[in-house]
Design a binder for these strands. Structure first.
Length: 577
RNA sequence: GCGCUCGUAGCUCAACCGGAUAGAGCACACGCCUUCUAAGCGUGUGGUUGCAGGUUCGAGUCCUGCCGGGCGUGCCA
């Protein structure tokens, strides 16, 4: 018996059933190689898929189709040989050849039901794995400059980034959540000028209002707080206002703290928390920017032209070189970005992921090019990016243009207050990052029942509802007895539920591998749907004790997986609704 | 112009590395609460997966070219 077969047993690691089947097929293929049926030089790549149609069994492989050509045989004949060569095992109850040559696997009934016991014993840990091997991953997200309230776009960023961290944790990684912001540049001065203008009683309509000033109403509140001598405490700083209209530096420092604090409130309402706040100014004060420039110059990737210093990013795949130091001596935004990412690399993270709107996708090439030009052995694909598409906001059937200048955008706070945290978060996370989503404010707020998050939460609450009924109706429920009686569950709906439950660990892995939390949302919607359908057409609290216990145990497992999945999205799993 | 990206039912979206008959919700029509929560379930209507080629045993998925949307193409970030 090949060594890997030690892992294949009914009592073993049942959750990665795909891998187990793949191992079986691999063993069969290797035997056919040894027999000379498959050319020895042919690399075998085994793929096992979930079936869409239950008449195709539980899992299927296309291996015979891919081997037909190298074996100079037809797929169905190859499939027959593969099946004959499968090692003995107790996880598969039936194997069939179907269609053009698919091999369909039916899992043994007990094997299928065992997932329920696995779920209940693992509890909140069910579905997690250690593929990240406790390695450190840093995820930078939100990273909004403190010049205004967070809007819907930041909301998508926050939901995606935080959920990604939860997913990575579930896959055995150790995430660090990091927030990077500019506390010293031109935009911050611009902010301070705007506040000072408001203190002086100016409005955006006045002629002397600063050209690029921030017009939003929040600047008025900020100015009032400053003149009232208030103290603001943000997560990463605390400032007491000097209340001096002439003290520009004091205004700036207070404004930063004030707006950071406002952002903190939104993020907390969203249940998003950061481990590290990184200041762009520290890159200068700690000499990281200068060191980066020096290194780039020494490596010969820079040149002067038109009074500016350029970086030869074209040597690393960019379509044109980029200015790194402007004529006026200041640096363009991407130079500090390179210094920052050099710093991330040197901090020893095994992996770094940036969550950004796709309107910044051009920085990807630039930052990576800058890092390559440092010649420090930073991997070419460093850092990873999760780019998400812009959100279009609809209100009263019309598109709301998001613009800080005009002050006409939808804030995160507005959304959370009107639609609630769960609904907002779910909506923002439930679509693939590369989909341009349409956020209909009226739908999200007034008719929030249409948000599928309630559909999922309701399935969870229903389980708790029926469990509460057990005692009310003077019945009994015993988990052990239920587990022992799972074999009594032979309805199609029950088998389908167990199949879907078994897919959860694969989904957790796939969602992390693809940096796509939305895959969890899709999975949960499907699971909830199967449960609602099952619940509606079958009574849980039947007289027959075995069946009652078994159904309740299955329902508990469904609730557990729903709760685990919702937790990955940062959405609550209420027991009553 | 060039680069990236998206285009799936009337609307909003699924479809894991190419797999078998492309799925949900909303909307529309008709059903299901004296029985565990109807925020639920069932049945039906609705598709040339933008168009045209190509690769493959097999394409919504990969390649090429068009068409359409978004973003980028700043010594803005």
């Amino acid at each position: 018996m090949p060594p890997f077969l030690h892992h294949i047993s009914r009592s073993g690691d049942i959750v990665f059933m795909k891998q187990q089947i793949a191992h079986l097929l691999e063993a069969a293929a290797n035997q056919l190689k040894a027999e000379g049926f498959i050319p020895t030089e042919h690399a075998i790549r085994v793929m096992v898929d979930n079936t869409r149609d239950k008449s195709h069994g539980d899992l299927a492989s296309n291996l015979a189709l891919t081997l037909a050509k190298p074996c100079q045989s037809n797929p169905r004949a190859v499939a027959e040989k593969l099946i004959a060569a499968l090692p003995d095992n107790d996880v598969v109850s039936k194997v069939e050849i179907a269609g053009p040559g698919f091999i369909n696997f039916y899992l043994a009934g007990e094997s299928s039901a065992e997932i329920v016991a696995d779920i209940l014993s693992a509890g909140s840990q069910f579905g997690t794995n250690n593929s990240g091997e406790r390695k450190k991953v840093q995820v930078e997200f939100v990273s909004a400059n403190p010049t205004g309230p967070l809007h819907v776009g930041h909301g998508r960023n926050a939901a995606l980034g935080d959920s990604l961290c939860r997913l990575l944790s579930a896959n055995g990684w150790q995430p660090t959540r990091e927030f990077y912001y500019n506390d010293a540049g031109a935009q911050i001065n611009n902010l301070a000028v705007s506040v000072q203008s408001r203190i002086q009683g100016l409005t955006p309509d006045d002629e002397s209002w600063p050209a690029d000033g921030y017009r939003g109403e929040y600047i008025i509140e900020l100015a009032k707080a400053y003149m009232a001598g208030e103290t603001v405490r943000a997560d990463d700083r605390e400032v007491t206002a000097a209340a001096d209209a002439e003290d520009f530096d004091a205004i700036r420092e207070f404004a930063i703290a004030y707006l950071r604090h406002e952002q903190d409130l939104d993020l907390k309402a969203f249940d998003v928390h950061f481990d590290v706040y990184f200041l762009e100014s520290s890159l200068y004060s700690d000499g990281l920017v200068d060191a980066t420039v020096k290194q780039l110059v020494e490596n010969g990737y820079t040149y002067e032209d038109g009074g500016a210093m350029w970086l030869k990013t074209t040597e690393f795949g960019d379509d044109k070189d980029r200015v790194m130091r402007k004529k006026d001596g200041g640096y363009t935004y991407f130079l500090p970005d390179v210094a920052y990412h050099k710093n991330k690399f040197e901090r020893g993270f095994d992996r770094v992921i940036n969550v950004q709107g796709s309107d910044h996708h051009s920085t990807v090439t630039r930052v990576r090019a800058g890092l390559q030009a440092l010649k420090e052995g930073i991997p070419e694909g460093f850092p990873d990016y999760s780019l998400y598409q812009m959100i279009r906001v609809m209100r009263d059937g019309e598109e709301v243009k998001i613009s800080k200048r005009a002050g006409s955008y939808v804030t995160m706070r507005e959304l959370i207050e009107e639609a609630g945290r769960d609904a907002t978060r779910y909506f923002l996370i439930s679509r693939r990052a590369d989909a341009q989503i349409v956020f209909d404010i009226d739908l999200a707020t007034s008719k929030s029942n249409e948000n599928p998050v309630y559909y999922i939460q309701y399935a969870h609450a229903r389980v708790f509802g029926v469990l509460a009924k057990v005692a009310e109706q003077g019945l009994s429920f015993n988990t052990e007895a239920g587990l022992a009686a799972l074999g009594k569950l032979d309805l199609d709906a029950e088998r389908e539920l167990m199949t879907q439950l078994r897919r959860y660990p694969d989904t957790v892995k796939a969602a992390a591998d693809n940096l796509e939390p939305a895959m969890i949302a899709t999975y949960l919607k499907d699971l909830a749907g199967l449960f609602h359908s099952y619940y509606n057409s079958n009574k849980m609290l039947v007289d027959e004790e075995d069946v009652r216990n078994a159904r309740l145990v299955l329902s508990k497992a469904v609730a557990q997986v729903l709760a685990n999945g919702l937790a990955l999205l940062g959405v609550s799993a209420p027991e009553t609704m």
